[in-house]
Simulated scan of single mutants.
Amino acid sequence: MSPWYLKVKTSQTKHSGPLPEQSGIALVVTLILLLVLMVMGAGISYLASMQSDLVSAVANKPISIEAGETCFDNAIEWFSTSAGKSWVNGVGASYDLAATGAPLSGKTVLADTIPQGQADSRSTKFKDRAGRASYSSCIVQKLASTSSLGVGTEVGVSNGYGASTFTYTIKITALGNYNVPLTGGAINTQFWQSNSSRSALEAVVQYTP
Rank of each mutant, 00 (worst) to 15 (best):
S2C: 01
P3T: 07
Y5Q: 12
Y5W: 04
Y5A: 14
K7N: 05
V8K: 09
Q12V: 10
L19P: 00
G24D: 10
G24V: 01
T30Q: 02
I32C: 13
L33A: 15
L33F: 11
L34S: 09
M38W: 03
M38H: 01
M38T: 13
S52K: 13
D53M: 14
D53N: 15
V55L: 11
V55H: 03
V55W: 02
N60I: 02
K61Q: 15
P62W: 04
I65Y: 08
A67G: 04
E69M: 11
I76Q: 10
I76F: 04
E77H: 12
W78H: 06
F79N: 07
T81N: 10
A83R: 13
A83F: 05
S86L: 12
N89Q: 15
V91Y: 07
V91M: 06
D96R: 01
D96Y: 01
D96H: 01
L97M: 10
L97C: 04
A98N: 02
A98K: 04
T100D: 11
G101Q: 03
P103A: 02
L104N: 01
L104E: 00
G106V: 06
K107Y: 03
T108S: 13
V109L: 08
D112E: 13
I114N: 08
I114Q: 13
I114V: 15
P115L: 11
Q116D: 08
Q116N: 09
G117C: 04
G117W: 03
Q118Y: 12
A119E: 13
S121L: 15
S123F: 06
S123D: 14
S123W: 06
K125M: 10
K127C: 05
D128C: 02
R129V: 12
R129Y: 11
A130N: 01
A130D: 07
A133I: 02
S134N: 12
Y135C: 10
S137H: 10
S137G: 07
C138Y: 00
I139N: 09
L143Q: 11
L143W: 02
A144M: 08
A144T: 10
T146M: 09
S147A: 14
L149P: 04
G150P: 02
G150A: 08
G152C: 03
T153L: 07
E154Q: 14
E154I: 00
E154Y: 02
G156I: 01
V157A: 06
V157R: 11
N159T: 14
G160T: 07
T165S: 14
T167H: 05
T169C: 06
K171C: 05
I172G: 01
I172A: 01
A174I: 00
G176Y: 04
N177F: 00
N177K: 03
N179D: 11
N179R: 13
V180Y: 03
L182S: 12
T183Y: 08
G185D: 15
A186H: 01
A186Q: 12
F191L: 15
W192H: 05
Q193W: 00
S196A: 15
S199T: 14
S199P: 00
A200E: 14
V204Q: 13
V205P: 00
V205C: 10
V205Y: 02
Q206H: 12
T208E: 14
P209F: 09
P209Q: 09
P209A: 09
